[in-house]
Nucleic acid binder design. Sequence first.
RNA 1: GGGCCCGUAGCUUAGCUAGGUGGAGCGCACGGCUGAUAACCGUGAGGCCCUGAGUUCGAAUCUCAGCGGGCCCA
Length: 1072
Amino acid sequence: MNIITIYFQHGAYHMIEEITNQYDPQKIEKKIHDFWTEVDAYSKVREHRKGGKRFFFVDGPPYTTGHIHLGTAWNKIIKDSILRYRSMNGFDIVDRAGWDMHGLPIEVKVEGELGFKSKKDIESYGVGNFIEKCKEFALTQKDDMTDQFQMLGAWLNWKDPYMTLKDEYIEAAWWTLKQAQDKKLLELGKRVVNWCPRCETAIADSEVEYEDRTDPSIFVKFPILGEENTYVVIWTTTPWTIPSNVAVAVHPSFEYAKVKAVASDGREDVLIIASELVDTVLKKGRYADYELLGTMLGEDLISLEYASPLADLVPRQAEMEHGIYLADFVTAENTGCVHIAPGHGMDDFDVGKKHGLPIFCPVGPDGRYTEAAGEYAGMHIREANRVVIEDLNERGNLLSEGTIEHRYGHCWRCKTPIIYLATEQWFIKIGELKEQMLSEIEQVKWYPEWAGSARFRDWVEGARDWCISRQRYWGIPIPVWKCSSCDRIHVIGTKQELQEMSGITEDVELHRPYVDELLLDCECGGKMKRVEDVFDVWFDSAVASWATLRFPQQREEFDKWWPADFITEGQDQTRGWFYSQLGASMVAFGKAPYKSVLMHGFTLDGEGRKMSKSLGNVIAPGDVIEKFGADTLRSFVLSSSAPWEDLKFVTGELGNINRTLNILWNVYRFPLPYMALDRFDPSEVSFISVMPHLRKEDRWILSRAQSLVAEVDEAMSRCTLHKALRSISEFVLEDLSRWYIQLIRPRTWVEADDPDKLAVYRVLYDVFVLISKVIAPFMPHLAEEMYQNLVGNVYPDAPITVHMTDWPVVDESLVDKDLETHMDMVRSIVEAASNARQKVGRKLRWPVSRIVLSPVNQQAADAVVDLKSVLMDQTNSKDIVLTAIGESWDELGFEANPDPGAIGPVFKGDAGKVIGAIKSANAGELKKSLALHDQLELQIAGASVTIKPEMVNFTETLPEMVASAQSVAGIIYVDANLTRDIESEGFAREVIRRVQDMRKELNLAVDDNIRSHIQINDERVLDLVLDREQFIAKETRANVQVIGLDLDTSGSLEKDWEVEGISMKIGISRAK
RNA sequence: GGGCCCGUAGCUUAGCUAGGUGGAGCGCACGGCUGAUAACCGUGAGGCCCUGAGUUCGAAUCUCAGCGGGCCCA
């Protein structure tokens, strides 16, 4: 039968259904997904909360790679759990899913599919065709990923997501740039940028990946003008930048040495090097010897000028003056003199700017030298390293050549080593916003606190102006039009403005190449053409918080919702989305776009290494779901560690979680057959009606359930989702499975109408319904499954899904903290009793006559009185005896242990006799006297000696067949001495257990009756068993039962048993 | 090289804010229960609390310095 129809079928009885034996997450989750789709649960739930307290959530848009990984799964699971929790708490939620769909990664993918190698291939294929391919690719990937996210049970607005490739989104970016222009925060400038020579574009700092790489390591001698054979020595790992050298930088306060170095062939060079580095540099240059000519500070070197060793190859180098300048960034490494090429380095550029040096950059976007590089023109810089080294060597300027392995930046997409190029780019002047940004950070609530106050703050403090332009195709076109005759600039803010200014009436797509074709009229009468750049993709996602509200197209929603109440992303987004959003929002609105931020960790493999394709340790969420189900995956990632800590993915732990859910399933399943048998209808058995019949343990579990809700609320308020999950798990395992269910089992077996049984049903029902709600944010499928059966099948008017129900409010009237404490103590006593039983070898099936507790305090004593029946029941004891608080049990014996250390010094030679006397004395009296008089006279060989308390230690001795164990309530003693009655009950239970075992083997129904024949080959035991003949027949549902010494035991099943050394033979058959 | 975070039993972790005999789960060994039974429960063994120094009567906890891992930056 289709379960969906079950949910809607309500017969005469409101029936809770029996469920499968095993927790089967795949089956349940499939069923629940179908159900959600069928009733459109998500939309209905969001609709249901319309008009409630507002909660504006912005989804950090994953890049449309086509497949989700564990990290993105974790991310969405956190989001989903928090949103479900909020929704149940009455919040009206905005939660459009987001997709980041522009940029190089997709271009690179499409280039790969089309077999392209460079931008020229794209141009000849046609930019329009290329853009269409990229769009199609992004949209397909988006759909694939949506399916994968939905498998996790993540409820976001998937039907109407925001997509960075949509015109409405592009307009949000354009509008933002126009704000920057209006506020004079947009700047076109020549700057040194990270440049990928393959992609032929600037790339953001955040797109640079650092990896180990082997590069040349060369020391070069620059000849000082006007001094014979004198050189300043520099070091570099990029020989190809030597043709672009403009200056040398030294540190103002370092000491530099001028040394005469003698080569092995007798040639002499005068070299300028930082003093402390002379030895190492000369060693590199294989000089035989040197002589120190003098020392000076860096600031004394600035009058020197030098010539480029490559002046004959690069005409511009011959024209240029080369000087020595001061810079604080110079370190005492290598030579202490730094090669400065302002066209090829950030620091270099700054030095150049400061001193008005030429920004000489003879390298084109494709990584080849331009005409300005003279002889090198047309050569690719990759080949140039070798050639430059050779040229330097030929000219006698190469002091040393080697290689070095170091961390070097690579393009994050195509892995090409980046270079630094001085180029014209568009910048947002973050420098001017920094102070405001720092103060806005403090207005935001960060989870954890240090993510904002330390980490993010540190990043923002060091932030540089933001280069937002890229020289590519698949991105939001930068909406800047420039006049070809007067260089005037206009920034377009909306599509409408573009249409008006370009005079077109038809719709236009806001991508390249379409917008490139539109020309605007300039005030000067000339024509304005769009600059060719597109936006850095980080700028796309930066405007998500208002783009998701369709601003600037719609103003109302923006005014109503913005800024975001909450966002959460991985720690890598500190420099990424947390930052880009803040920057863009400062430009647009002058304030932070989010009120609270949860920074979560990274997923690592079992060894604690990051998951990466190259390591081959990537785990696909889909595989995990297939094996364990989404709820298990969700519980695992949520409970393993605090959200902001890294998550080690250990497969074994998943099994653990799975087991916990299975126990929850079993606990939930346990009473259902009885309830079904009794046609228990919760809608007809009110809680009020069972209240007079509640036992202590019922009140206890109800109190614990309320405490659980409070714990989860507390955890959620701190974003400590792992604590919420652990509280749930502890409640299920400890309180429900290991305790409450054990306590109430016999009550569910009663066959007649019984208020005590109904009370249990009602309590269990309420607890399960509460659990279904409490787990709903975290295990939405299992929660739904439970809810539909418990509530959906019973109350036709109930909310259609558990996710539409209200989050439980703690009912203080049900909370009884004293009772909870008492129960903790009782449980500890039961555990201790079990321990003690093992020591005396008495299994639980055999009652013990009494358990004695020496309570540690009043509370412990109260607990025993309060919960005596639970205690007797669970320890299977006939009586519980309390001593006075802190008092020993008076049936204990004592043993006196003389302490030779205390006796020896006092009695010297007689010590041995004293020790013997103490040992042979009556320990109990000894103890009493010492306690009473603080000393004791003993007669030894006619002499009287004085014994002091410190001379004797007493240890308790236990009576025969008594064992003790420690509990939190105090030490307990289990008296396992047998009486006829106990022995009779013990053997009877042994018999019952074996008959039950055989019933099971025959697959008898719980309520089937039997005929049984029990042969016991021991007269004494037979006699004992016969004492409880009725009891045995009742427990085993035997209509006919014969117990005897020698009888025919034939039946459907016949078995031989050995019980405590006595052989028995039992035969049973089903009674008609 | 810099910033932030993490390091506790074979594995996953609690305890750290507020210093006072380090608790769990898994696994392992042994046992119990047998109307949750392909389920459930108990007991036991197992810890230089990463290392070293400092503060303190007392440090897993606070401070400093190292080592190892993660994210980010240079």
